[in-house]
Design a protein around this nucleic acid. Structure first.
Length: 213
DNA sequence: TCCCGGATCCGCT
DNA sequence: GCGGATCCGGGAT
């Protein structure tokens, strides 16, 4: 931690690539969130790729709607959605433009503003749990639908941006099936994480909920 | 430590 | 009306 990280936002060309190239390349990069209470920074440790309209596991599978419109927009922007009646999750839209592909940020290490994150994540027993899971990550960084469509490449002082960080050597990256995704393509190794990192969320297989009687 | 069910509501069929 | 890219607490092991 002696070297000061690069304060330059990632170039849009970083995101304007196939999602399966972008997703593992995001590991170790820095997500910056600026709130009224102060800045937070997150080192990305776990992601999942969603391959646009051709991917049965993707929100874009059934075409463009009001909710997923951001995924069909330009690369390098945020797609924030509301799920399970109480949580938000953050995606980074990737190229090629119009393919509606994106990377779900599933987990990370809070490196700046851990005190602010802890106030929002009261149930976290340990700093490693602050952003251990997509909804926890969004809660820790105070991310909601108001940030949907935010340009992540514009300015490090914007509400949300992604900065350069140290690129992770491929040998330190693991991959496997996506968490909670069923149906066709459920087995695809579209989930990527930093091998052995304690902030990576536990894998859970897809299991449909039972309906009340 | 694991497993299970409840919470909660929006978008789409 | 139904199911969802989840989380958490409680009870069992």
């Amino acid at each position: 931690m002696s070297a000061r990280p690069d304060r330059t936002p990632l170039a849009r060309s970083f995101f304007d690539r196939p999602v399966l190239a972008v997703a593992p390349d995001l590991l170790g990069r820095t997500l910056v969130r600026r709130t009224a209470d102060g800045p937070l920074e997150l080192r990305i440790t776990e992601v999942e790729a969603y391959e646009g309209e051709a991917d049965p596991g993707s929100h874009a599978y059934r075409g463009r709607t009001a909710r997923n419109a951001s995924m069909f927009g330009p690369p390098g922007h945020a797609y924030v959605y509301f799920i399970y009646g109480m949580w938000f999750s953050l995606n980074l839209v990737c190229g090629p433009p119009g393919h509606a592909s994106g990377v779900l940020l599933r987990a990370g290490e809070v490196t700046v503003g851990a005190d602010l994150a802890a106030k929002r994540r009261v149930s976290a027993r340990h700093p490693r749990e602050l952003a251990k899971g997509p909804a926890r990550l969004a809660t820790a960084l105070d991310i909601d639908r108001s940030l949907d469509g935010t340009d992540l490449c514009a300015d490090p002082d914007s509400p949300l941006s992604v900065l350069h960080g140290t690129a992770t050597p491929p040998g330190l990256v693991s991959s496997g099936p996506r968490t909670g995704v069923g149906g066709a393509g459920a087995h695809h190794p579209y989930r990527f994480w930093l091998t052995g990192d304690p902030t990576v969320s536990p894998y859970r297989a897809h299991s449909p909920r039972k309906r009340p009687t």
